[in-house]
Structure formats: structure tokens, C-alpha cells
């Protein structure tokens, strides 16, 4: 009898999905759907928060007042995105505190790109242009994700990300047209961030264990490889336009398909970074953990104060 009920609930759930009706927090949903979303949304939230660190690294060294203000505003947006996303995960029953603890313990993942160091000002350009550019490719389809709170959060996130992408492109285009030292700085940033940016789309479709189920549930609406291709096709002409060279000797335009074909991604590097062996994995998580530990007394004080006022 109970099994029959569950089957009926599942049938109705899938029917909603198939008819593009959003799933809302109080609706019945299969446990796997809930868990998949919690995993994906919290990873996304962690990526926003950890992603503040590589760019935060250059706020105090920004080369002029305008760039400093824009970079501050951008990194602040990332914090805001983290906040919406942690809230979206909370609608599924994931406690924010516990979710963050999972990041600190290494149990939860975040986008590997943030484990690469930012070594020059041009990296602020490369990150906006490539990393936010890749993020947009991933995130625009999520505005149509089947889970309502996530889809709605993504609408706002995407608006801001597209602004971030443009500010990054503006930085790098300016450098690429600047002095030889600036141009060299821009090319060096592209050389270091190009391949990690391609890795942001995740493993090839054949290797991606979550793709099929997520597509059926309309959590995911395009495959990793489709999105990666879209990114390459958009970005290569942009690099050409500003006179920078994509660091891939195998890159070529296939005239028949109209798509660019790239060389092989170094998947061994990708998996090492995912496992925790990237250039800055430890530094990034340590920084987050330190912020939490250093802020412990502040949070305790705020709670104690609120309690005192309640009793007054």
C-alpha cells in the first residue's frame, strides 16, 4: 500500500517536471532529488564564497580608484550570491552552519578554479572574462531549473555575473591594448586560466556520473560538453579580437560544424585539484576556516546580546 503511494507521488512529481511546473519547498520530492539539489546548490554557494578569495587578493593592490571600487563591488556580489544560495539550500532543509562545516572539513566541494593563484592584476581580467564567462554558460540554463527557489536565485545571479564578465573583459582588453608589459601580463593570465576555465564545466559527458539523472529532473538542462563547446565558441573570437593567443596549439575551427575543436584537457590535473592537490586548495579552505574561528567570539556576543535584550 505504502509503495503504491510513493509510486503515485513519484509519478505526479515527474509529471510536474515534464510539464515544466516548478517544484517548491513544501512539495513532495524524491529524496534523491532533494539530496542532488542540496549537493549542487551548496557546492555552488561554497564556490561563490571561496571565489571571493582569489579576487579579494587584489583589492588592496588595485591600480586605480575606479578599478578598486568595481572590484570591491564585484567581490561583494559574490558574497551576496553565496547568501542567496545558502538560503535556497535551507529551503531544502540544509542548515547553513552545517553546510559551511562540510566545506571546512573538506567533505563538500567547490569549483576547482578557485584553487589557482592570482599572481597579477591581469588575473582580475582573466577571472572576470573566463571564469565568470564560464560560470554564466553553466548558470543561464539553471534559471530554468525545476526547483523554484534555485531557479529564481539564479535569475539575479546571472544578471550580476554578466556584468562581472564584462568588467573582466574590459580589464583584459585594456591591458591587451596597452604597453608591452601590460600585454605580456594579459597573455600570461590567459595562459594560466584558459585550461582551468575549460575544466570548470566538469568531466566529459561520458565520465559525468550525475548528468543523466539531473537532466531527467531538469536540474541540469545541458551537458558538460555542450556548455564547454558553447564557451569555447564564444571566447576564442573574443581573444582574437583583442590580440591575445589561446594557449592551445591544437585549437582549430571546424568549418563543417562551425565549432572550434580544442586539444585534450589535462584531466589528471583536474582530478588532482578536485582531490585537494591544487596550488591553493589548502590556503583557500584555511582562509575560510580562519574567518569562522576568528569570528566565533563575535557571533557568540551577538547571540548573548540578543538573549539579554529579549529578557529585558
Amino acid at each position: 500500500m505504502e509503495d503504491k503511494n510513493i509510486l503515485e507521488l513519484e509519478r505526479r512529481f515527474q509529471e510536474k517536471i515534464d510539464n515544466d511546473i516548478k517544484i517548491e519547498p513544501n512539495d513532495w520530492m524524491p529524496d534523491d532529488y532533494r539530496q542532488t539539489l542540496i549537493r549542487q546548490i551548496s557546492q555552488h554557494a561554497h564556490s561563490e564564497i571561496v571565489g571571493m578569495l582569489p579576487e579579494g587578493n587584489w583589492i588592496t593592490r588595485a591600480p586605480n580608484l575606479r578599478r578598486k571600487a568595481v572590484l570591491l563591488a564585484k567581490v561583494q556580489d559574490e558574497a551576496g550570491h553565496g547568501l542567496y544560495l545558502y538560503s535556497a539550500a535551507e529551503t531544502l532543509g540544509a542548515d547553513r552552519e552545517e553546510t559551511i562545516d562540510d566545506l571546512h572539513s573538506g567533505k563538500a566541494k567547490y569549483s576547482s578554479i578557485f584553487n589557482y593563484p592570482t599572481l597579477s592584476w591581469a588575473d582580475m581580467g582573466a577571472i572576470g572574462w573566463l571564469v565568470d564567462g564560464a560560470a554564466i554558460m553553466n548558470q543561464v540554463p539553471l534559471c530554468r531549473c525545476s526547483y523554484g527557489p534555485y531557479a529564481r536565485a539564479m535569475v539575479r545571479v546571472c544578471k550580476e555575473e554578466s556584468f562581472h564578465q564584462r568588467q573582466g573583459f574590459e580589464i583584459i582588453a585594456h591591458l591587451a591594448q596597452g604597453t608591452p608589459a601590460q600585454k605580456e601580463m594579459a597573455q600570461d593570465a590567459l595562459n594560466r586560466f584558459w585550461w582551468p576555465a575549460l575544466m570548470m564545466f566538469g568531466p566529459n559527458d561520458a565520465e559525468s556520473k550525475h548528468t543523466v539523472q539531473s537532466m531527467n529532473w531538469k536540474i541540469k538542462r545541458s551537458t558538460n560538453d555542450e556548455l564547454r563547446q558553447l564557451f569555447v565558441d564564444v571566447t576564442v573570437p573574443q581573444a582574437e579580437m583583442i590580440g591575445l593567443t589561446i594557449p592551445d596549439k591544437d585549437l582549430k575551427l571546424n568549418k563543417e560544424t562551425g565549432h572550434y575543436e580544442t586539444g585534450e584537457i589535462n584531466w589528471a590535473e583536474f582530478w588532482e585539484v578536485v582531490k585537494g592537490n591544487g596550488p591553493c586548495n589548502k590556503e583557500r579552505v584555511d582562509a575560510r576556516r580562519k574567518a569562522k574561528e576568528d569570528g566565533m567570539w563575535v557571533r557568540e556576543a551577538a547571540l548573548a546580546f540578543a538573549e539579554k535584550r529579549k529578557n529585558k
Binding site: 564564497i49 571571493m52 578569495l53 579579494g56 583589492i59 588592496t60 578598486k68 571600487a69 570591491l72 563591488a73 567581490v75 561583494q76 558574497a79 551576496g80 553565496g82 547568501l83 545558502y86 582562509a287 580562519k290 574567518a291 576568528d294 569570528g295 566565533m296 563575535v298 557571533r299
Partner: peptide, 22 residues
């Protein structure tokens, strides 16, 4: 104040401090 960006004691306060800096 901008040195705090990304290191605030809670996310909401990180955002507030960055606003101040801005």
C-alpha cells in the same frame, strides 16, 4: 576596511564591511 573583504566574521557582516569600504 577593504582588507576585510572575504574574511568577515559572518557572511552578512562581510557584505556590510565591503559596503562601508565602497
Amino acid at each position: 576596511v577593504s582588507e576585510w573583504c572575504g574574511h568577515g566574521p559572518i557572511l552578512e557582516e562581510d557584505i556590510a564591511l565591503t559596503n562601508l569600504a565602497l
